[in-house]
């Protein structure tokens, strides 16, 4: 990943405002941002390690450990709650065998909270490996469970 940082900054610039785009690119590449890379990023952008650590930990999107092979982001916001979201959240945790906000022990699937996907009239909603799914019910959860078992 050190080479990745070098190449990326050579192509896209190494000013401070490139930090978020760089972190997004690194997570896209490796799935997460390893703490060991914080000094590398800091050196590349001429920032302190504390600065970079502060940014990585501030934003919910950035992961510091490897994610599950599949990621289900389930909406917890009000509009999905108004459509039975809390019950679906419980059912999803049971069906996928993983608590909200956790990755299953076998690393197969992670269930993550998300606050609004902007599909607020057709909830409860989720992003399954980036694919939007609406009107989630028990049958939809079954399909998702089969999908993430692969």
């Amino acid at each position: 990943m050190e080479d990745f940082v070098t190449e990326w900054t050579a192509r896209h610039g190494a000013t401070r405002d490139r930090l978020l785009p760089l972190l997004h690119a690194m997570q896209e590449e490796a799935g997460y941002i390893d703490d060991a890379l914080v000094p590398v990023i800091a050196r590349a952008l001429n920032l302190s390690r504390a600065d970079v650590h502060g940014v990585v930990t501030f934003y919910h999107d950035f992961r510091r450990t490897a994610p599950g092979r599949h990621v289900v982001k389930l909406c917890r916001a009000e509009s999905c709650q108004a459509r039975g979201g809390a019950a679906i959240e419980e059912a999803a945790a049971r069906r996928l065998g993983v608590a909200m906000g956790a990755t299953r022990a076998d690393g197969q699937v992670a269930l993550e909270p998300v606050y609004c996907l902007g599909l607020c009239a057709i909830g409860p909603n989720a992003l399954v490996d980036g694919r939007p799914v609406a009107r989630i019910d028990a049958a939809a959860l079954d399909r998702i469970a089969v999908e993430v078992a692969a």
Binding site: R16, D17, L19, L20, Y59
Partner: peptide, 25 residues
């Protein structure tokens, strides 16, 4: 285009500006 990173508070205008600048929002 600048992509956010899951922080609701970045919808507040000054937090958004800090986020574009590469800081905590």
């Amino acid at each position: 285009v600048r992509e956010g990173a899951g922080a609701y508070v970045c919808g507040e205008e000054t937090a958004l500006l800090d986020s574009i600048e590469g800081k905590r929002g």
